[in-house]
Design a protein around this nucleic acid. Structure first.
Length: 311
DNA sequence: GTCCAGGGTGAAA
DNA sequence: TTTCACCCTGGA
């Protein structure tokens, strides 16, 4: 990873000169589930063992430690977490004239694909099955509060519990926290990782296909969840996540066969977007969400001609 | 109060 | 390939 010399470290915070980042959409937009807005601005969360506030700043982000460990190491940690080594410039250039992404990229450049801890990411997306973001945050947050290690004054200021601890807690514990049927998937997954049967971090070095198959071998991990974990924690920028919203977007903007299944659509998109699939995926998802919100507000019909000033 | 959707998966038809 | 149960929370 290259660290920009324009990053500025002071006693209380680190400014990362990484260009404009939409902190809300990136940290609290469905990639990660343990970032919370603070009344004083920015988002509060834990990365590794560090309790942080991350806020948007002119030309980058400002990272402020909320624990007593100072700023040492934060630059490296957060550049990595924010996916700064991804080929954002190449992506922007290559798809500048794309029917869906072109307009989005011209008016909007603040999305990043996070590089999270693989275990926390896997836990979060197994939990996401037939759920919604508020509930996922509720579930993941409560499990972390009960099982994680405290690194700050608030209940939420905890590290994510190790797989051993989750495995030890057991299925009924998670059911009592409101995980529902997902509890019976999470415990075996925790056991597989705790035992070393599945070495998650090693999948960063594996091919996309091999890593994907290894994840899908876990009960409760299908193609969608696997692609989320691959994109958001295992360095697989060729991963493209297809849910029903993305499928609709693909039909709207591209010449996709009428009756394409989710699986077919994902293959098509990976072929089309290549190594930029995960970035394309985030921009498409965000654009679709903005359009949906706009229509829910009873406002302008933005389904077809998306006004660039709303991007 | 009821109804329903929510960034799915696995098993059975 | 399609259908259905699986849990449960918040909003309509």
């Amino acid at each position: 990873m290259t660290t920009s010399e324009n990053n500025i470290m002071t006693a209380n915070s680190v400014f990362l000169s990484v260009g404009y980042v939409d902190v809300e959409a990136t940290l609290d937009g469905g990639q990660a589930f343990r970032w919370w807005p603070e009344e004083t601005g920015g988002y509060r969360g834990v990365v590794g063992r560090r309790l942080l506030n991350v806020s948007g700043a002119d030309g980058g982000v400002l990272v402020t430690p909320l624990d007593d460990k100072g700023v040492i190491g934060l630059e490296h940690t957060m550049l990595e977490y924010l996916g700064q080594d991804q080929d954002i410039d190449g992506f922007r250039t290559k798809f500048a004239n794309d029917p869906c992404l072109g307009p989005a990229l011209r008016g909007y450049s603040g999305l990043r694909v996070l590089r999270q801890d693989p275990w926390e990411c896997l836990f979060g997306f197994i939990t996401s099955s037939t759920s919604n973001i508020p509930r996922i945050k509720l579930n993941v947050g409560s499990a972390a509060e009960r099982l994680g290690y405290s690194v700050g004054p608030e209940d939420r200021d905890v590290t994510f519990p190790e797989p051993e601890v989750v495995a030890e807690a057991g299925e009924q514990f998670l059911r009592d926290l409101g995980f529902g049927f997902r509890a019976k998937y999470l415990i075996p997954a925790a056991e597989a990782i705790a035992s070393g049967q599945l070495k998650l971090v090693d999948l960063r070095e594996a091919s996309y296909q091999d890593a994907r198959e290894a994840l899908i071998d876990l009960h409760g991990v299908g193609e969608k969840v696997a692609d989320c974990v691959l994109a958001f924690s295992l360095d697989k920028s060729e991963s493209f996540i297809v849910d029903r919203h993305i499928l609709r977007a693909l039909h709207k903007w591209y010449d996709l066969p009428e009756k394409a299944s989710l699986s077919y659509a994902a293959d098509w998109a990976r072929d089309y977007f290549g190594e930029h699939s995960s970035l394309a995926n985030q921009y498409m998802f965000h654009r679709e969400r903005l359009a949906r919100r706009a229509s829910e507000w009873g406002g302008a019909h933005v389904e077809r001609a998306l006004p660039e000033d709303e991007l």
